[in-house]
């Protein structure tokens, strides 16, 4: 499984890329592999305030719907229209074109509390 070293990860398999105070969120290669064919992504409303751990988006495969949790608190400032139009991007390019939403983060330091690539790699075994 591909686990890029420049990202942070949650136990619930979201990844975070922090640039300034903007955190881009998606799901890991491991998660997309477990879900298999992603057929629908439900995006959050722009401007929604979320706390860390809030169900914020939904990714659905043929068999199941899975909540995507906010890795850290913030305001939803951007959503990815491309994954709405072509949900399979979550499978084919989970760390780039398959991103799901961006948060304007209140507490940038909270990202440091998430797993780094080595810890996440150990988590998924």
């Amino acid at each position: 499984m591909n686990v890029p070293t420049d990202l942070r990860y949650c136990t619930s398999h979201e990844w975070v890329r922090l640039e300034g105070d903007i955190a881009t969120v998606g799901i890991s290669d491991h998660a997309q592999h477990e879900l298999t064919d992603v057929v629908f992504v439900e995006l959050p409303a722009l401007g929604r305030e979320v706390d860390s751990g809030d169900p914020t988006a939904v990714v659905e495969s043929v068999k199941a719907a899975s909540d995507i949790y906010a890795p850290i608190g913030g305001e939803v400032v951007e959503i990815n229209p491309d994954v709405e139009a072509d949900p399979s991007l979550v499978n084919t390019d989970p760390y780039a074109q398959g991103w799901i939403f961006k948060l304007k983060v209140k507490d940038v330091a909270a990202v440091e509390g998430l797993m780094d690539a080595a810890a996440y790699q150990a988590h998924i075994g």
């Binding site: 298999t36 064919d37 057929v39 495969s61 043929v62 068999k63």
Partner: peptide
């Protein structure tokens, strides 16, 4: 078996 690789 629910699936092998891809249900689709």
């Amino acid at each position: 078996p629910v699936q092998y690789n891809s249900i689709i």
